[in-house]
């Protein structure tokens, strides 16, 4: 039972107020794109043991989507941030590095 903080409305709430939405920072590939790119966008997933960037929606709150950096082994949440970005912001990266020095970084 996770606790998450919505970066949009600032509320820290129960997992049941949120909906998970899978891996974050996927690049959309549209018509004409190569099979490999479309496949990576739609299906292939990092599914890491460790640091994971993922989408959540504050469904039963402000309704906003946001992103979280979370460890899939300990469930530690390194931070949450707005969805309107194509890669994790520097403070999130720093928070992860502080806790997981061996982490290879966002790729």
């Amino acid at each position: 039972m996770l606790i998450l903080t919505c970066p949009c409305c600032g509320v820290t709430a129960e997992e049941t107020e949120f909906s998970p939405g899978g891996e974050a920072h996927l690049k959309r590939y549209g018509p004409g794109s190569p099979d490999r790119d479309y496949e990576s966008y739609m299906f292939n997933r990092k599914n890491p043991r460790g640091v994971h960037f993922e989408r959540w929606r504050h469904t039963y709150g402000c309704g906003k989507w946001f992103l979280a950096a979370r460890c899939t082994i300990t469930l530690e949440v390194f931070g949450t941030y707005r969805a309107q970005t194509t890669e994790p912001p520097a403070d999130i990266i720093a928070a992860i590095k502080a806790r997981r020095p061996e982490w290879e970084g966002f790729a």
Partner: peptide, 14 residues
């Protein structure tokens, strides 16, 4: 099943 990636062999109570 939970909707989020997880390797803990523990799920959410709800």
């Amino acid at each position: 099943a939970d909707g989020f990636n997880n390797y803990t062999q523990r799920g959410s109570w709800h």
